[in-house]
């Protein structure tokens, strides 16, 4: 059984059909990349998986670890091991990063019936991850993403990924808006996360991220469905030739 199994998925947003019979299977230990032109439905796929309100599954199924996701609340999906790195992480003034991260971890541990993490252990691991991602530990005291630059917000997403240790990470254009240094840091984080017990679904516009995170499978999403899948060389072809040759 695949970690993620999407079958004939049809999704509407505000009555408009965005995904139109999408099929995808991802196993543990795999990294898949989804590429595609603007408006093809990449972010819709990420959002519908995470349960964002307004994204309606009209037909088909999204099965995660054998469980149908469509009827679950976003927090229950997180408890099951799904993680979405947001394309545009929201700012939450007044809630400190520290408080937010600790509450997230506590909720996940409680849901997974794991032992609670002490504040000391928590601080230690957060600081270690922050250092790895070149994030000033002072950020812990600030409001969630408050006043962060685009790069800092994305690094904060990766920090959460490494701290919360989900089973499947969906990264929605995490590379967009990053300079080359930040891109490398983010890629390093994703590579450190990626392992035999989890999966990664990378949604990206550009091949350059895939220089740093090598995917097992590359899919092309167009007009709401996967129109072609291949190995990492497919991304190079797309970079060289554009999308027109795969999108009929």
């Amino acid at each position: 059984m695949s970690l993620l199994q999407i079958e004939e998925l049809v999704v509407e947003v505000a009555g408009q059909r965005i995904l139109n019979g999408l099929n995808l299977a991802l196993d543990t230990g795999e990294v898949h990349a989804i590429m595609g032109p603007n408006g093809s439905g990449k972010s819709t796929l990420a959002n519908v998986m995470a349960g964002r309100p307004g994204y309606e599954v009209v037909e088909g199924r999204i099965e995660f670890d054998g469980v149908e996701l469509a009827d679950l609340e976003p927090d229950t999906r997180a408890h099951a091991g799904l993680f979405l790195a947001f394309q545009y992480p929201v700012e939450i003034p007044g809630v400190s990063n520290m408080e937010f991260l600790k509450a997230s971890l506590d909720n996940l541990h409680a849901a997974r019936e794991l032992e609670a993490v002490s504040t000391v252990e928590f601080m230690k691991s957060v600081r270690a991850i922050a250092e790895e991602l070149d994030l000033n530990p002072e950020f812990l005291k600030r409001g969630v993403n408050e006043g962060f630059s685009g790069g800092e917000k994305k690094r904060n997403e990766i920090l959460q990924l490494l701290l919360l240790q989900p089973r499947l990470a969906v990264l929605d254009e995490t590379d967009s808006g990053l300079d080359i240094d930040a891109l490398q840091v983010v890629a390093k984080g994703v590579n450190r996360f990626s392992g035999p017990d989890n999966g990664v679904l990378l949604i990206t516009h550009y091949q350059r991220l895939l220089d740093h995170i090598v995917p097992d499978v590359v899919h092309v999403l167009a007009e709401g469905r996967i129109v072609r899948s291949g190995d990492k060389d497919l991304a190079l072809d797309l970079e060289a030739k554009g999308y027109s040759w795969v999108v009929a």
């Binding site: 349960g51 964002r52 609340e73 927090d75 919360l164």
Partner: peptide, 9 residues
């Protein structure tokens, strides 16, 4: 939604 996506009810 952001908080929920991190496991918070």
């Amino acid at each position: 939604f952001y908080l929920q996506s991190r496991g918070m009810p």
